[in-house]
Design a protein around this nucleic acid. Sequence first.
DNA 1: AGGTTATGTGTAACCGGTTACACATACTAT
DNA 2: ATAGTATGTGTAACCGGTTACACATAACCT
Lengths: 326, 326
Amino acid sequence: MTTIRDVAKKAGVSVATVSRFLNGSGYVSADAAKAVTEAVEELEYELNPVARSLNTKRSSLIGLILPDITNPFFPELARAVEDVALSYGYTVILCNSDEDPKKEKNYIETLKKKYIAGFIVTSNQLDAPHYADTKLPIVALDRAINEKIPVVSSNNKEGAVLGTNALLERGCRNILFLRGPEALNPANDRYDGFMEAIGKSDVDYRIVTCPFHYADSQKIVKRELKANPAIDGIFASSDVSAAGALKAAAILGRNVPDDLQIIGFDGIAMGEMLSPGLSTIAQDVYKMGAIATRILIKRIENKPVEESFYEIPVKLILRGTTRSVE
Amino acid sequence: MTTIRDVAKKAGVSVATVSRFLNGSGYVSADAAKAVTEAVEELEYELNPVARSLNTKRSSLIGLILPDITNPFFPELARAVEDVALSYGYTVILCNSDEDPKKEKNYIETLKKKYIAGFIVTSNQLDAPHYADTKLPIVALDRAINEKIPVVSSNNKEGAVLGTNALLERGCRNILFLRGPEALNPANDRYDGFMEAIGKSDVDYRIVTCPFHYADSQKIVKRELKANPAIDGIFASSDVSAAGALKAAAILGRNVPDDLQIIGFDGIAMGEMLSPGLSTIAQDVYKMGAIATRILIKRIENKPVEESFYEIPVKLILRGTTRSVE
DNA sequence: AGGTTATGTGTAACCGGTTACACATACTAT
DNA sequence: ATAGTATGTGTAACCGGTTACACATAACCT
């Protein structure tokens, strides 16, 4: 392996000059620069990032902490983070936290020892006291940790308004809202949006709390649909819940969308594969991940970050679970 | 930050002794061991992995190279790899290769500089010349790179036999087999299994090559179903293709499963959410990832690895797209 | 007793970079 | 002319570990 000393010798300068040139720090004459460039070229020298890390106490590692990569929301996020990180020369470490603060903390400690450059943190938990004291650059997704930590999130409230209005415009007179877990920021914002939009109408509605879980949702919706056959619209706070609702409707022989219209929230790929295709409020998950990563890297590299709160617009996607507006 | 020198001073021994004790290498007296243990405890000393890496040229990093984490097959794999890696003290780096050998190679080069301990490689490509010369421990998933590299894969052929027989037992007399891309090992094994099982029957069949892609599959199946209305069974080489087939059937008003039965392959979570639920040959993806990781870690730690070819059994899961056996 | 081998420990070089500091020269300002 | 600043470079310490080697003592042979 060629080292900086080999390069220095070949270029006829000291290692300090080589290092300065390579890092663009300090003064280096044109002659020296040329000699070093040539030596690097000829020796195919590549800097050893471990040696560098050891004394700079920095690295090009980014930690991506998420509850569970298996949850259909996260792969696309991970993909975006990885793409952007790669393009800036960073490497992504995958951390499944399972919503367990201990596990999360453990990851942070372990990776700090490796001089990790920063973290992107996605979690459903509202509180995260152990982040507060970390001096590392962090960007949060979908949850506010504290004022100093930038947050990237979808425009959940607006999305919920959009979805609710879509059902209203399509003639729903009795809407079931599947509210997400109350511990989740995004779920609460969606709830607020629903309430705002439904409040402006004179339509009947009912709210049921429902985890973002397929089988649970199916069970809950089956029960609700049986108890209240007048329901002609369901707005689910997640696509997975919507899938459960759709299944429940199928089992009960309800005709979607003629009889019952359904809108989900998230925009995961699966929605398209359902029959009928799931209408949904799609989040631009890729964009969320990409923006979060760009902000993180700016922070890592001490570049100015304009804002600390980024809201990504959502989009209504109409498929088969809703009718066209009459 | 406390260093090994602090510990040595506190314990009244040399750094060499501390290092030896910490690594279980060389001789350390009981007295010295005790003194070091106490000093470590009191100072809350934690070894710096970067400094260690620098001269051992090893690390506890594992690279997971996969085509695209967004593909529903991979998150569960990644999850398994991460779980097992974590339990052995390793950290996982996520690498989306997009099937691009250049990108793959680039990752390998980059991570080698960080003294990565080993790689788990999943790829759809059959050839991978650039792995051959790597001295790093590697474990492959679903593809054989060379004799020295262990492979973990599902029992694809047996699965295909299982699926084909399931359709036959349920009365199918005209089966459409959606064959996966010919460049893929697993797809070819599935094809072999189908041929073997179908050959033993006197049933009509037709084979169409179909990418593991939802929309494409839908189009292809729609065409096939129109051209040949007698088809009463579809065996798809992947669940995503099966989902496309199911959608096509729904659009054409075919009744699944009374009229047309469908079996997929993979066992991804989405299958359950479809209506009717997708019958499938489920791979134990988690197990594949877990086993691959364990083997890799054994290799990294120079422990003996029994075999070099691991086949994970598959399982027939019957849901709504197949009838019960009459 | 004398030679081997096993046990135990410390010194110092080394891994491959970065950077504080000292020093030299050239240019600018007064 | 002289001080002050900008430019350019090298030496050597340092980051925080590992380990070769030298040396010392204890245990085991014959």
